[in-house]
Amino acid sequence: MTSNPNEQDDAVELLQNIATGDENAMRSFYQLFQSAVYAFAMKRLNNQTDAVEVLNEVMFDVWRSADRFQGRSKVKTWLLGIANFKVIDVLRKRGRTDHEDLDDDVPDENEATAFSEIAGQHDAGLIRQCLEKLKDVHRQVVHLVFFEELSYPEIAEILECPSGTVKTRMMHAKSKLKRCLQGLGFV
């Protein structure tokens, strides 16, 4: 998703209007960020109903507390940070969370070599298939990198974890994609 260069300015202005109870501003704000919040929640929850629930809860938080935005981070980063809490709430209700799994393990250096060997033989359908098989925590990082086009410090801020953890999760995602592609007959 290519971000709109004026997105931040527009969003800050909308937040100021939302804080005064302007419903039209809320509608515009919703439209501006609905895809980002929904897609973020969907990648982790893999359930449309839950993702919509998170989206609307986040937007209600914005409606109730737009004046609390301090301007220390980008509006989207702030928003996805709120969404992250809501997503964890849903996962806790489901009784499962795996977002910290394997964060301490560093992928094998040899795997990276094998991974590079399959580059150039890639196929969109198979990559899509393998992305779907990733753990939601890894799919989420891939999403934030390639769909939201966020930097690793921004992702760390949203997920409230160190930058090193973000990088490790991404390395895991790559490693698992590689294994999946190998399993489908590459290499």
Binding site: H122, L131, V142, H143
Partner: peptide
């Protein structure tokens, strides 16, 4: 880059 195209 291929993953980016699919993820996007």
């Amino acid at each position: 880059i291929s993953i980016q195209k699919v993820a996007n």
